[in-house]
């Protein structure tokens, strides 16, 4: 008998067998169920799937040759390179930070811990435009260190360093916020056992802590990477939109779009969409793997 329960497992199904009448009483009529499924599928198809498909349709409208020509353009290549560079700097920096912060926060007791966690989450509460603006206020011409920078001929805003900084800001919490709850749950027993057996702090971290959090770490890293490559607003503020110099891929999409070059804009956008789809696929795979491991652990514990 097929169960409409999400609280699957043995007890639940036995229970439903024993009390069939109550089970029926906690279920909706077939037409309600059908209506819910229809609304869900239609709503998501119209709102999410159709726009996604349209990007690819528009990108290939003038054929495969034109599609690929959109990437061999000098400015497109420069944009792809800059996007990769920004991600290659910001993701490792924030991964290192996430691991460090998670170790300090979850392996020790100190006052102000929840305040610190809130502060780490802060960039998520700041809108993209404001995220870019605050760097203009520090490094821009009228900014705190703007005069000093221009004296020394260093350009941050409307240049690559500004783009990297803005990207670091918007991807700041991703790794830390995946690791902290998990490591808090895992406690410190295993690490304490390792150190009492003579392992150094670094060995303990590499051999005990890291393997325990590897999936959460991967999860955080791929989400941070997707955001780093796809960020638009924060980067738009600090970029200056200099073609071939400070245009990242999303900004290049905007430039092309504003020139009514819809096919090329959609082609570059389709590449970014693929990045999003790959991210989703990895994310789902990691979630599936973690759930399976968790269930396997539960079964071996109960037997």
């Amino acid at each position: 008998m097929e169960l409409a329960l999400t609280t699957t497992g043995f007890e639940a199904s036995n229970w439903a067998h024993a009390r069939p009448r109550l089970k029926a009483a906690t279920e909706e009529k077939p037409w309600v169920r059908l209506a819910c499924i229809t609304v869900t599928v239609l709503f998501l198809a119209l709102l999410l799937f159709v726009p996604l498909a349209s990007v690819f349709a528009e990108a290939f409208r003038e054929g495969v040759r034109v599609y690929f020509a959109s990437f061999s353009d000098r400015y497109a290549i420069a944009a792809i390179r800059l996007t990769l560079l920004a991600a290659a700097i910001s993701v490792p920096l924030n991964t290192a930070f996430g691991l460090t912060a998670a170790w300090a926060i979850t392996k020790f007791q100190f006052r102000g811990k929840s305040l610190l966690i809130t502060l780490i989450d802060l960039p998520f509460a700041v809108s993209p435009i404001v995220s870019g603006l605050i760097y203009v206020l520090v490094f821009g011409m009228q900014g705190w260190v703007g005069a000093w920078l221009s004296e020394h001929n260093i350009q941050v805003i409307f240049a690559v360093p500004g783009i990297v900084l803005a990207t670091v800001f918007v991807t700041f919490p991703f790794v830390a916020r995946e690791l902290i709850p998990l490591m808090q749950e895992q406690g410190t027993e295993e690490e304490e056992a390792a150190t009492s057996l003579g392992a150094s702090g670094w060995q303990t971290f590499m051999k005990v802590t890291l393997p325990n959090v590897k999936w959460a770490l991967l999860y955080g890293v791929i989400l941070a990477n997707a955001r780093a490559m796809g960020e638009f607003g924060a980067v738009a503020v600090v970029s200056g939109h200099l073609r071939g110099k400070t245009n990242t891929m999303p900004l290049h999409v905007e430039t092309l779009y504003n020139e009514y070059n819809f096919v090329a804009a959609s082609a570059v956008a389709s590449l970014l969409a693929l990045l999003g789809l790959v991210t989703l696929a990895i994310k789902s795979a990691v979630e599936w793997k973690v759930r399976r491991d968790y269930e396997a652990a539960a079964v071996s514990e109960s037997s």
Binding site: C36, T40, F49, P128, F232, L280
Partner: peptide
Amino acid sequence: YRFPGRKLVDALVDLPFALPTAVSGIALTT
């Protein structure tokens, strides 16, 4: 509810998180 394609629908929900905002923007406009 369990229905065919449920996993796909479930994955689709995260699309706005995964899609760069500029892509969503031009997709919706198109």
